[in-house]
Amino acid sequence: MTLAGLIEAATLRDAAAKRHLEQGGRLYAGADFYYMSVLNDWAFGVARALTGDTREAAPRLTHAAARASAMGAQAIEALVLPDLVEVRIAVGDLSGASESAERSQVLAESLGTTVASAHASYARGLVALAARRVTAARAALQAAADLASSSGLRLLQARALERLAQAYDGSERVSRATEAARLYAAIGARRFEERALSELRGLGAAGRRSAQTVGELTPREREIVALVRSGLANRDIAERLHVSERTVETHLAHVYGKLGVASRRELVQG
């Protein structure tokens, strides 16, 4: 229920997301599902934040973080805190956001995992960006993107890149915002993708041109992607399409760039 609700919120199916998360809240209300209840609170808060309802999201996420802390579930708390930081900034509570970011860093040091470090770096970067400490924001958000990438956390990577873009101007901003939008498109996070595209369209002619290319594949590229996902090797694809193997490789290189994937496996999984 929780995972379904979160996915639906990210893909613009708000009514279904709310239904699943409310069902999850009822299902996990008992003591036997305490961990799932905390995760459901977190997911509900994230879903509300995605629809712009930060006032409802803030108490949900605060409650989830407090419950995770009380039960000693550091990994869950580390997951919740960056979203709480983001929402607290959105409602104008920079002091509270800073406290949550500091707690996130403490957890990262305690857990000693790349995943926790990625989340903590993202939280620090958000606070630095909100406080207009541009150099610190760039460093933290780039670290978050790199750590998320190395851990396979593609949504967090894209979110870090999207915020990183806001720490730059001109072509640097367009480039990073485009990278974020392409990664969102590759993983099917439509709500995040639309947000990034809206940002791009507000960055002048260069941004509008870049927004038009995000996720766009030519008919031939779509055909090759379908054949790759069906399990065919490049040589087999070349024979079927009556082109050279080098041509297939060139098309795939373009596809990887447009969709923000780094390998054939990521393309198949996407």
Rank of each mutant, 00 (worst) to 15 (best):
R103E: 03
D236Q: 15
Q157K: 04
R191D: 12
D14S: 11
T2M: 15
L203F: 11
D93P: 02
A144F: 00
T2G: 15
V255K: 09
T51P: 08
V115N: 02
V106K: 15
R133W: 05
G188C: 10
V115L: 01
V248L: 03
A158P: 01
L39Q: 14
V80N: 01
V228G: 02
T11K: 15
V268K: 09
G52S: 04
A43R: 13
K258L: 11
D146R: 09
S171D: 03
A70R: 12
A130T: 07
A118N: 10
R132A: 14
L164P: 01
L6E: 08
V174M: 07
R124N: 13
L61H: 06
K258Y: 08
A185M: 07
A29C: 02
A16G: 01
A128I: 01
D146G: 04
L155K: 11
I187N: 00
E8F: 09
A130E: 05
E266D: 11
L107D: 09
D93W: 01
E86N: 05
A262L: 13
A9Q: 04
L129N: 03
I89G: 01
S244T: 15
E179L: 06
L21F: 00
V174H: 04
L39V: 09
A181V: 04
A120F: 06
L21V: 02
T247V: 09
G231V: 00
E216S: 04
E77R: 08
I224V: 14
V115P: 01
G125L: 08
R208L: 04
G188R: 09
E172A: 12
G215M: 02
A185E: 11
A144R: 03
V80F: 05
T62G: 07
A68L: 03
V87H: 04
I7N: 10
A97D: 11
D53G: 00
Q157M: 09
T114N: 06
R60L: 09
S121Y: 05
I89F: 00
P219M: 14
G30C: 05
E109A: 06
S175Y: 08
G45N: 13
E8S: 10
A108V: 07
R26A: 15
S171T: 11
E102Q: 14
G52A: 05
A189R: 02
E223Y: 04
A226F: 02
A70E: 15
A137C: 02
A181C: 07
M71E: 10
V91K: 06
L156E: 03
A130F: 02
E179W: 00
Q166H: 07
L197T: 12
H63V: 04
R191M: 02
G170Q: 03
S100M: 00
Y35S: 14
L129M: 10
S69D: 11
A196L: 02
G96H: 07
H251M: 08
S151W: 01
R240Y: 12
A101Y: 06
A143Y: 06
S37V: 02
W42C: 13
L21K: 06
R88Y: 14
L84D: 00
L203W: 03
T2L: 15
L203C: 09
R159M: 01
R209P: 01
S121A: 15
S198F: 12
L111D: 09
G5L: 15
V248I: 14
V261T: 04
R235H: 13
G52H: 01
A65H: 07
Q269D: 07
R88S: 12
T178I: 08
E22N: 09
S230E: 09
R13V: 10
E245K: 13
L129T: 13
T213W: 03
S263V: 03
